[in-house]
Amino acid sequence: MYNKTEEVNTLLSAESTISLLLTAVYAVIGWLFATVFRGKVSQIDYWVLIWLVYDVLIHITLEGSFVVISLVSTVQDSDHFAAMTWKEYAKADERWGISDPTIVSLEILTVTIVTLFAIMLIYAIIEGRYYRHFLQISVCVCELYGGWMTFCPEWLTGSKYLHTDNWLYLWVYLVFFNMLWVVIPLLLLWQSWAEMKILLGGQGDIISETITTTTNTVRTYETRSKAKAKASKKD
């Protein structure tokens, strides 16, 4: 088991280097994918697509392998190549090495429902589907919930499984990578809020104009009817 007081003198181990390079490759794949559809989406949605593809790849490959390993054993006891990344991350958060039930439960939700919604969201953005922002809000809320339930229980119990005595574990593994799934979902929620406000505001104007036009039409009809009635009485 990892010793919390252990001093780590090396900046990057082979495992951490490979893990960081893998995440960089996923970002490049996301960029290439978004570039293919750049002509069909807005500039903002171009960056959203990069993030979503990166997000899906992380969920399917890295987190998916974690779920499979954790359901049959633990990362700590596994010799599979896919366990290498999680053994490295477990140096920062030991729960990922021992198949903590809360972590595994959240990852099952992430690998299944959240990943499916994210894939559907990518399609909805490219094709301009009406349900795009419903999916975007759902994905973001799930991501934020996952982050909260990952760290809040640990904070409440004294953070006994978190190891922050090395800058790599603290600022790269725990802060940077986890904050990505906080800051970006919050920005996407803000985008959905702004887009729906514009959409519903425009619909409100249309509805208002329709009501006004209908009211004026009814009043015109009533005026003409009264005029005809008066003319009939005179005759």
Rank of each mutant, 00 (worst) to 15 (best):
M120S: 07
T61F: 13
Y161I: 09
E88D: 03
N166H: 15
V67I: 02
W47T: 13
L200Y: 10
D205T: 07
S13W: 15
I125S: 01
L62A: 15
W190V: 14
S99K: 11
W148E: 05
E94M: 12
Y46H: 00
R95K: 12
L109I: 11
L199G: 03
D45V: 03
I211E: 11
E195I: 12
A118E: 14
N3C: 04
T23Q: 07
P185A: 03
S138N: 03
T215R: 11
L109Y: 13
F177Q: 12
A82Y: 08
L187G: 06
M84K: 08
L109A: 13
S232I: 15
I137F: 13
W51C: 10
S42V: 10
I44K: 06
Y145V: 11
T164V: 04
Q191R: 12
V48A: 08
L32D: 14
M1N: 14
A14T: 07
N216W: 03
W171Q: 12
G39D: 01
Y145R: 04
I50R: 11
M196C: 05
M196L: 15
V111E: 13
I198F: 06
S138F: 03
V48H: 02
A27S: 14
V56S: 11
D235S: 09
L57G: 05
L162Y: 05
Y123I: 10
W51S: 07
G128I: 00
I119Y: 07
G158S: 12
Y161C: 09
T213D: 07
E88I: 01
L12K: 11
I119N: 08
S138Q: 01
V41G: 01
K91Q: 08
I50C: 08
C142H: 14
T85M: 09
W148T: 14
I184V: 15
D100T: 01
I108Q: 11
P101V: 04
V36A: 02
T212W: 07
K228P: 09
T74Y: 10
M196V: 14
C140E: 07
T10A: 07
Q136C: 02
K233Q: 12
W31A: 15
K197Y: 08
F177D: 08
F151T: 00
I207Q: 11
E127F: 00
D45Q: 11
I207N: 06
A229M: 13
T85A: 07
